[in-house]
Amino acid sequence: MQIVVNGETHDVDVDQNMPLLWVLRDELGILGPKFGCGIAMCGACTVHIDGRPMRSCSLPIGVVSGEVTTIEGLGTPGALHAVQEAWVEHQVAQCGYCQSGQIMSAAALLARVPEPTDEDIDIAMNGNLCRCGTYPRIRAAIHAAAGKLREA
């Protein structure tokens, strides 16, 4: 079967039930999405499918029909997305393991709600766990990124 990840088409020959996360990580070597729980409870594996945030650990590859975007496709160290810029400016990351997922959820929120309230952030982001407790800076960075995107 074929999947499109970050604009590139890949042929993959795997079990239809294999979660997208393990196709990305172990078959394609796309390592930004992280394994955290395997049951869509922590959000570390969050990717976009046609722009919508999805937990790739619990999504069988057989049902993926849209275009997949991972953190690598959102922006790169040399060409950051506005959300990533805000994450760097606010020094959000600590251990950093959940941050790919946090950033993907935040980018999807801002694409849908350009000026989110704190309550919008609570609803959109509460599926993304951070054991380092970087939440105060995540919130500040989302508000800052919203400002950047409005100006852009």
């Binding site: 172990d26 070597g29 390592l31 930004g32 999405p33 992280k34 394994f35 991972t70 953190i71 690598e72 922006g75 790169t76 160290p77 950051l80 990533q84 994450w87 760097v88 020094q91 959000v92 990351a93 950093g96 393991y97 941050q99 790919s100 950033i103």
Partner: peptide, 28 residues
């Protein structure tokens, strides 16, 4: 306050954790 040396990698999915280590013909 100094910018963290790891913050760019950790904001772009490019920081390598042990779980991301990739070796030739590796098995899982």
């Amino acid at each position: 306050s100094q910018p963290r040396v790891d913050v760019l990698a950790k904001s772009t999915g490019t920081a390598e954790y042990a779980i991301d280590v990739t070796l030739p013909n590796m098995l899982f």
